[in-house]
Amino acid sequence: MATRLVEVQKLKKWFPIKGGVFSTTVASVKAVDEVSFFINQGETLSLVGESGSGKTTAGRTLLKLLQPTSGKIIYKGKDITKLTPNQMRPLRRNMQIMFQDPYGSLNPRMPVGDIIQEPLDVHGIGTRKERKQAVATMMETVGLRSEYEKRYPHEFSGGQRQRIGVARALIINPELLVLDEPISALDVSIQSQIINLLQELQQRLNLTYLFIAHDLAVVRHMSDRVAVMYLGKIVETAENDELFDHPLHPYTQALLSAVPVPDPEVKRERIILQGDIPSPVNPPSGCHFRTRCPYAMPICKEQEPLVIEVAPGHTVACHLLTKK
């Protein structure tokens, strides 16, 4: 049986909005609102959803880069929710992140060799010579020429910068890598190179990925399992094929209907989502999706739908399924 590497239970991350004379909390951005999921060792779980649905916040909170408001984070059976930043530091060797923005995520005043080497410096791994060697090897591994180690980030293209980001994340041999939309800022022509690199590295180094994305074609190509997020909630989780072949939640169906289908035999009704994603400060009552759902019913306004398991490993939160 697959072993669970990491699991979150009812994870919540609310950002307080301060206001008034005494700067008290007047409201909260409910970026992640009681989300539960797990990732098995060696697999890729994709987290998909529109921009603003809370994917980045979920990924960062999972790594404790943000302190969760409530809920639990369990890493290899150990509850890490309450660990202080200092206690987290040794654990950071095992869990790394690669960022969406190839420009903002590299210090413009540091040569890339130093950027890639920094995790080794921080954790005191190896001698100076061994570190230099490790950097050179890692640069070649991710497809960068090691002679470029003295250059600064601005001398590289977006795709090359993302390779630098991968090298930095992988140089300390992590188990878990959170990939926060690693290709969405890149040219389409370069996206597939990075995706191939990530897949190859996963195989070679037995990595576990949390892959955050909104491009469903890539998600289908990459994932073992997929979780669909909408306005701070996970609305559907399933194995890759199951989700793409039998999407049950109206939001998942709407997302999928926007993806061109390669097989012309398969006719999929195109569902156009009305309006914009509502504000996470005041999400709609009951089902968060009801303001845009073509099947919304009176109960959707009153009650939050429970998460139910409709098939092994396939969970959905929608009243359409509870009714049956």
């Binding site: 960062r60 790594l63 880069l65 930043p85 987290m88 530091r89 040794p90 950071r92 060797r93 790394q96 992140i97 960022f99 923005d101 903002g104 995520s105 590299l106 210090n107 413009p108 920094e118 995790p119 921080v122 954790h123 980001g165 930095r168 300390i172």
Partner: peptide, 10 residues
């Protein structure tokens, strides 16, 4: 983000 990245590596 590079500051977040630095925190992420510990």
């Amino acid at each position: 983000e590079y500051v977040e990245a630095a925190r992420a590596i510990g």
